[in-house]
Each structure stands twice: as structure tokens, then as C-alpha cells.
Amino acid sequence: MAEAVYLLCALTSLACAALLLRSYRRSRMSLILWTSLCFVGFALNNVLLFVDLALIGPHIDLSVFRNTAALAGVSILLFGMIMLETS
């Protein structure tokens, strides 16, 4: 059950990232690229969560890596939003 949740979150993030990357190629609006990268970060976060909790046992802890991926993703988006505001 929990594994399915992690995978679904990862797939959703990847789908959003792909959709937005395609849109970015068309519109070249930088905020779309940042949003796309944010979803890449979320996807990485969720994939690592799945690997960490479902595939490998409790002896290895990837929590720092997965939390860093999420923070990097959302920071990129926030950076993009602030850049748009000041441009």
C-alpha cells in the first residue's frame, strides 16, 4: 500500500515534469522550466523514498538525499517565481 503511494507520487511528478518540459520547448518561458525542474526534484524525492523504504532495508538511510532532492526542487521553483517578479 505505502509502496504504491510512493510510486504513484513519483509517476505523477515525472508526468508533470515531462509535460512542462515539452511546453517549455514551445514557449521558452523560464518559469515553466523552473516548475518542470521542481517536479523533477519531487520525482527524485519520491523514487528515492520508494527505494529507501520498499527496496532496501533499514540498514541504509537515504533520507538526507531524498529530502535534499525535494528542497532543491521547490527552491528552484521559488527562485523562478521571485525572478519573474523582479524581471
Binding site: 538526507v64 529530502n67 535534499t68 525535494a70 528542497l71 521547490v74 527552491s75 521553483l77 521559488l78 517565481m81
Partner: peptide, 20 residues
């Protein structure tokens, strides 16, 4: 370290939510 990362992510998510 994890608590720090979670805290920073929380604040960034809040800011992004406000922008949206």
C-alpha cells in the same frame, strides 16, 4: 540534518503556495 531540510522545504512550499 533531516529536520533542517524538512524545515527549509516547509517554508519554501509555503512561499510557493502563496505565489500560486
Amino acid at each position: 540534518m533531516n529536520t533542517f531540510l524538512l524545515g527549509a522545504t516547509t517554508l519554501a512550499c509555503a512561499a510557493v503556495a502563496l505565489f500560486f
